[in-house]
Simulated scan of single mutants.
Amino acid sequence: MATLRRLREVPRHLLVCEKSNFGHDKSRHRYLVETHYYNYRVSFLIPECGILSKELKDLVMEFGPYYFVKDLPLYELITHEFINSFVTKGSCYALTYNTNIDEDNTVALLPNGKLILSLDKDTYEETGLQGRPSQYSGRKTMRFIVSIDLMDLSSNLDSKKYKRVSWAFKEKKPLKFDFLLAWHQTGAEGSMMSYFSGYGIQEHQPNIALSTTRDLRCPVLRSGLLEGEPEAACSAHELFDWLGAVFGHADLNNEPYNFVSTYCCPQPSAVVAQASLGTITGFILPEQICVLLEQLCRYFDEPKLAPWVTLSVQGFADSPVSWRESEHGFQKGGEHLYNFVIFNNRDYWLQMAVGANDGCPP
């Protein structure tokens, strides 16, 4: 009976779907991209395309850079010099690396200047800072969330609040982490490489993988019909599964002798002669994804055989937040991701998925 009970305890997953048009005044596409801060993989699929346009290929190859800093004291992120050099002069992102959200202390610096700490009970008590219990702690609170507004903090360096936070990170409980860092700025001067040179900072470029798939069987999608609507052909869950199989280069033929994959394309479907796939992996900023999304929309400025293209974005499983400042958890699944299906009339479907320890996407 215990075995049967465990089999029934399938982790809860939540998939939210909406449709709109990129030209609509109330379209939320840009807001939802810009507030999904920590992205490690971006994938796109363009049916009936054998060679990417120069504009699209150049854009993909220009993603980056981002930086890795080992054993960086958390105190360095609250200094007036850092805030004035990066936080106030662009969008600055930082995320602890190789930390597990359900086991370790994790930290994220949001582009709005909020520093979010997810701390275990002992560390939280040792810092002496004010926070709130994690909403995923269970009956016994073992994790706390601390939010520090760096903009407010740096406005008065002589305030009791700044002195308390500074003392907590520098003397009371000095914390060090490996960090991923990135900075999006327009016309601002400054360099993260030189600023953190004393900590052995490393510059990285995202990993780019471009390929062409022949004779790909694709589901038939119609822009006006989403899951649950009359005559809707392919459900959102089916589309998600299919895209995962395509980007994972799984065998989709459902041959009886294939013991690795018996998966096949949702019906109705059609075979396209060729399709372009692209995957970008690294520490990828929302600002870069917004530009790529717009470029994919412009793909249909000239007539194309393809009726739609897709853009899929996956977030870091161990990020303290998913969208905006919404707390993110792991437990049985740490996914938080979204997918655009972009149609040739500028209609789009937006699908947002989260795992067991997350609230509903915005």
Rank of each mutant, 00 (worst) to 15 (best):
M1H: 10
M1E: 12
A2V: 13
A2Y: 12
A2I: 14
E9F: 05
R12I: 14
H13D: 07
L15M: 12
C17N: 05
S20M: 03
N21Y: 02
F22I: 13
G23M: 11
H24V: 13
H29Y: 15
Y31W: 03
T35R: 11
R41C: 15
I46A: 11
E48M: 12
L52P: 03
L56F: 01
K57W: 00
M61H: 14
F63L: 05
P65I: 02
P65Q: 01
Y66G: 07
Y67R: 00
Y67H: 06
F68D: 08
D71E: 14
L74C: 15
I78A: 04
T79Y: 04
F82H: 12
I83P: 08
I83T: 15
K89M: 14
G90H: 01
L95M: 02
T99F: 05
N100S: 08
D102Y: 06
E103K: 13
D104S: 06
A108E: 07
L110G: 03
N112A: 02
L117R: 01
S118M: 02
L119Q: 00
D122H: 01
D122R: 03
E126S: 11
G128N: 02
G131P: 02
G131T: 00
G131H: 00
G131D: 03
R132G: 00
S134D: 00
G138Q: 06
R143Y: 07
S147N: 10
L150C: 03
L153P: 03
S155V: 01
L157W: 07
D158R: 08
K161R: 13
K161D: 11
V165R: 00
K170A: 04
L181R: 02
A182L: 01
A182H: 08
G187R: 05
M192C: 07
M193D: 05
Y195Q: 04
Y199W: 14
G200K: 02
Q202A: 10
Q202R: 13
H204K: 12
H204W: 09
Q205A: 11
N207Y: 09
L210W: 08
L210T: 07
T213Y: 11
R214V: 09
D215C: 12
L216E: 04
L216S: 06
V220H: 04
G224Y: 04
P230A: 12
A233G: 04
S235A: 04
S235I: 05
S235T: 15
S235D: 07
A236K: 01
W242M: 03
L243P: 05
G244L: 05
G244W: 09
H249N: 14
Y257K: 08
N258C: 10
N258Q: 02
N258G: 07
S261I: 08
T262F: 09
P266W: 07
Q267E: 15
V272R: 01
L277G: 12
I280M: 02
I284G: 01
L285R: 14
I289A: 04
C290K: 00
C290Q: 01
V291P: 00
L292F: 06
L292V: 06
L293I: 02
C297E: 10
C297Y: 02
R298M: 12
F300G: 05
P303G: 05
V313M: 00
G315R: 00
D318C: 08
S319P: 01
S322T: 10
W323Y: 14
R324H: 06
R324F: 10
E327V: 03
F330S: 05
Q331W: 06
G333L: 08
E335M: 12
E335R: 10
F340Y: 14
F340I: 10
I342W: 11
I342K: 03
I342L: 15
F343E: 12
A353F: 13
A353L: 15
A356C: 14
P362A: 10
